[in-house]
Computed example of a mutant assay.
Amino acid sequence: MRFQVLTIVGHAPHPLTGELAPAADRLAEVVDTGVAAEQLGFDGYAVGERHAGPFLSSAPTVLLGALAARTSRIRLLTGVTVVAVLDPVRVAEDYATVDQLSRGRLELVIGKGAEAGHFDLFGLDESLQWEYQAEKYELLRRLWREENVSWTGRFRPPLKDVTTVPRPYGGRPPRVWHGSATSLASPELAARHGDPLFSANAVQPREAYARLIAHYRERFEAYGHDLRTAYVGAGSGGLFIADTTRQAVALFRDFYEARVRQSHRPHLEGRPGYNTPFRTVEEAVEHGPHLIGSPQQIIDKILGYHQVYRHDLQSITVDSSGLGLPQQIEQLQRFAEEIAPAVRAAAPTTLWQEAPGDDRATDLPTAHRTADDRTAERAGDRTAG
């Protein structure tokens, strides 16, 4: 198992005290947490993207650029890049820049996003969200894999002989995951292209996500891809570790249940993927994805999900716990020292065995491989002969 820390940079008043940190302080915390995650041995750090609601994650490329400058080893991911509302040309340019700054440590997780309001904000028709996502991702793939791209589609003006710059680091595009929460559309798109899947594993029962993952693996194989590369990630909600589960429940109860009330959106009642059904902390511990409890309770819970999902990457979130930054770092340290080693040993994976940049996509048109790629291939041919 690999582990990443995810932030969607929430910026709502504390549900118990009403306190609201200045935006500058909140953004600085995001970068400081990423630095700490690297020091503690986490494999990845992910920044979400939201354009509606109480969040400060509308410009994840800026935050990832800052993280690239402050870190040197940890992989940098998105969670998710809302490609459905964005121009693929701009996505290709912005994230290739981050990829260059981080020297190949970038990976995207794309999705249609978890906020219904962003389609109106960008003047888009929400009923076409899956069509937007499929077409824009197809174009992004071409822009990162080819030069002199000519293209015509439904949702943006045509392109003629376009080469986006900078090119991805090393001439190979970053790995792209597909965020999956409620629809079979994302697992289908991921399977078609042989890409990994990232299950939200957030506000629905486990069975709902298991259905999406099973569909992904079935279709991945049907499209002719090697199932050994059908990597799956899974979210988890918030993290709160205490010496015993009883202590964790007692300490976290008031905050958790106040946050559920604060974040409830009546206008989205009944729409899957928005309002959590786990209204009490006991329900969250017993049935929800939150990692609340003793180290052993959390180990057992992650491995319980792994029995169902067979996932390779576990995402955790620590900044939705109501704790200050020093306490959040302490939680990450406890996870890294008391939980991660046991889960890694019990659930091995081949994901990210190579150094960042070395495990990139190789399905590039021959004419567009870099000179270094072609030189290495010729050397390999000589050795084989």
Results as ranks from 00 to 15, higher is better:
residue 282 E to H: 09
residue 109 V to K: 07
residue 52 A to R: 03
residue 42 F to L: 01
residue 159 L to H: 08
residue 330 E to G: 02
residue 23 A to G: 08
residue 334 R to E: 00
residue 121 L to F: 09
residue 115 E to A: 07
residue 80 V to Q: 04
residue 324 G to Q: 10
residue 106 L to R: 05
residue 12 A to R: 13
residue 382 R to Q: 02
residue 347 A to H: 00
residue 313 L to M: 02
residue 233 G to R: 11
residue 139 L to C: 00
residue 382 R to M: 15
residue 323 L to M: 11
residue 286 E to K: 14
residue 364 L to F: 15
residue 297 Q to E: 08
residue 248 A to W: 09
residue 190 A to L: 08
residue 166 P to R: 02
residue 300 D to W: 03
residue 256 Y to G: 07
residue 257 E to T: 01
residue 353 Q to L: 05
residue 79 G to Y: 10
residue 299 I to H: 06
residue 329 I to V: 06
residue 91 V to R: 06
residue 80 V to T: 11
residue 22 P to I: 07
residue 62 V to K: 07
residue 315 S to Q: 05
residue 185 A to I: 15
residue 109 V to A: 13
residue 3 F to V: 03
residue 322 G to F: 15
residue 127 S to L: 13
residue 159 L to P: 06
residue 272 P to E: 01
residue 352 W to A: 05
residue 273 G to Y: 10
residue 133 Q to T: 11
residue 238 G to Y: 09
residue 73 R to A: 07
residue 296 Q to P: 02
residue 59 A to H: 14
residue 340 A to D: 01
residue 68 A to V: 11
residue 23 A to Q: 14
residue 344 R to W: 04
residue 211 R to M: 13
residue 229 T to W: 06
residue 174 P to R: 00
residue 131 E to C: 04
residue 86 L to R: 14
residue 328 Q to P: 00
residue 40 L to E: 04
residue 77 L to Q: 15
residue 122 F to E: 07
residue 175 R to N: 13
residue 321 S to A: 10
residue 373 D to W: 09
residue 152 T to V: 15
residue 375 T to A: 15
residue 328 Q to R: 07
residue 130 W to Q: 12
residue 331 Q to N: 01
residue 108 L to R: 05
residue 161 D to T: 12
residue 95 Y to V: 08
residue 124 L to H: 12
residue 197 L to A: 00
residue 303 L to S: 05
residue 128 L to E: 11
residue 203 V to P: 05
residue 284 A to K: 03
residue 354 E to P: 02
residue 380 G to P: 10
residue 199 S to M: 10
residue 286 E to F: 02
residue 215 H to A: 14
residue 67 L to A: 06
residue 374 R to L: 15
residue 53 G to Y: 07
residue 191 A to P: 00
residue 75 R to G: 10
residue 256 Y to M: 12
residue 135 E to T: 02
residue 273 G to R: 10
residue 4 Q to S: 09
residue 382 R to G: 01
residue 291 L to T: 06
residue 180 S to M: 03
residue 331 Q to E: 10
residue 305 Y to H: 03
residue 149 V to Y: 15
residue 54 P to S: 04
